[in-house]
Amino acid sequence: MDSRASTSSGAMRALSMELKNLQSQPVEGFTIDVNEDNMFLWSVGIYGPPKTLYQGGYFKATIRFPSNYPYQPPSMKFTTKVWHPNVYENGDLCISILHAPVDDPQSGELACERWNPTQSVRTILLSVISLLNEPNTSSPANVDASVMYRKWKEESNPEYEKIVKKQVEDSKKVAQSEGIQVPETIDEYCVKWAPPRDETDYGMLDEDCFYDDYQEDDQSDEEEDDCGASDYGDDDEDSGQGEN
C-alpha cells in the first residue's frame, strides 16, 4: 500500500468514527446525511437558531474532506442561498477554523484560530451556529453583506434583515417539500443526550444544551481576544477571513 492510499484509509477511519459519534451524540441544529460509498462528501441541513434572524430557516450545505483529513481541514459550501458577511456569493463558507494551519501573518489570524487535527465536524458545526448570529465584519467574504449588516446593527437599517428573512421563508418551502420539520423553539431545537461523566462536550448535558451556553457566552465573547476564547467561535476569532 502506497503512502497516498494509506493516508486515504486513515481519513476514512477518522470520518467513520466521527459519523458514528455524531449519530450517537448529535449536534443540535443540524442534520447529517452521508452516503457511505463516498465518506469524503457529507450533506448537512442547518436549522436557523431560535431568537435570531435565521429562526425557522433550513439551509443546506456540503462538507468536503481531503484525503489527508484530519491533518488538513475540510471545506464547507452552502447550497441554499445565504446572505451573510462570511459566506461568499457562490456559497463557500469562510471561517478561520477551516483555514489550513500555515503561518500567514498577513491573514490577521492567530495559529490557534486555524484548523488543527483535534478539530472535528462537531466543532465546525458549533462554530457555524455562532457565525450565523455573530458575523466577522472586519474581514468579510461578502463585502456588500458586511456593510449591510453593520448598517442594520448600528443604524437599524432594515435591508439586511429583509433579505435574510426572505431567504428563511424560501428555505421553509424547501423543508416542507422534503418533509422536514424545522424546530422554531429552543425546546424543539435543543438535542438532549447524556455524555459519560468524564466528558464535557460543549455543555450539552441531558438538562442543558449548547444553544443555552452559546446565548450566555455570547455576552462575554467581545471581552475575549486571546487563544483561550470560547471553543464555540466568536465574531473575531472563529469567523471568516477575506481569503478562503
Rank of each mutant, 00 (worst) to 15 (best):
S156N: 14
Y71D: 02
D213G: 13
R114F: 01
V128Q: 03
L41G: 00
S67T: 10
D226Y: 15
V121M: 08
Y214L: 15
A14Q: 04
G57A: 12
E169A: 08
T52S: 14
V128G: 01
T123P: 00
S146H: 09
Y189A: 09
F30N: 10
E199V: 12
V27K: 02
E28R: 03
D92F: 10
E243F: 14
S3K: 13
K60W: 00
N35I: 00
N116Q: 08
V168L: 08
V191Y: 11
Y58H: 10
E222M: 09
A175S: 03
Y189K: 05
D218G: 06
E243W: 15
D235R: 06
V164M: 11
G242V: 07
A61L: 05
G228L: 11
E188G: 15
I124Q: 00
G108A: 05
S24L: 07
C227E: 10
A175F: 06
K77I: 02
S138D: 06
V147S: 08
P70H: 06
I63W: 02
S8Y: 00
V102H: 10
G240Y: 14
C227M: 10
S138G: 04
Y47A: 06
A194C: 03
P101G: 14
D37Q: 06
T123C: 01
P105K: 08
D212E: 14
P70W: 05
L15E: 05
D226M: 14
D213M: 13
Q23K: 13
D92N: 14
K165R: 15
Q219G: 02
V27S: 08
D238R: 14
L205K: 12
L132A: 09
Y88C: 15
D37S: 03
I63F: 00
K77M: 03
A141F: 00
F30P: 04
M204N: 14
E113S: 08
D206F: 01
C227V: 07
R150G: 04
A111P: 02
S239C: 13
T31C: 05
V164H: 09
S127L: 06
I163G: 09
E199I: 12
S107A: 04
S127P: 03
E223F: 07
E89Y: 10
S239L: 08
A175L: 05
Q119I: 08
E237Q: 14
V143D: 03
V174S: 07
P85M: 06
S239I: 09
D226P: 13
E109R: 12
K165Q: 14
K192R: 14
P85V: 11
Q23G: 08
P50C: 09
E222V: 09
M1K: 05
P66W: 01
E216Q: 14
V102A: 11
K151C: 12
Q176D: 04
P196N: 08
S107M: 08
S75T: 13
N38E: 06
P66V: 02
N244P: 07
L53M: 11
D225K: 10
K173T: 04
T80S: 15
L126P: 00
G48V: 09
P196R: 12
K173W: 00
N157E: 02
N86E: 08
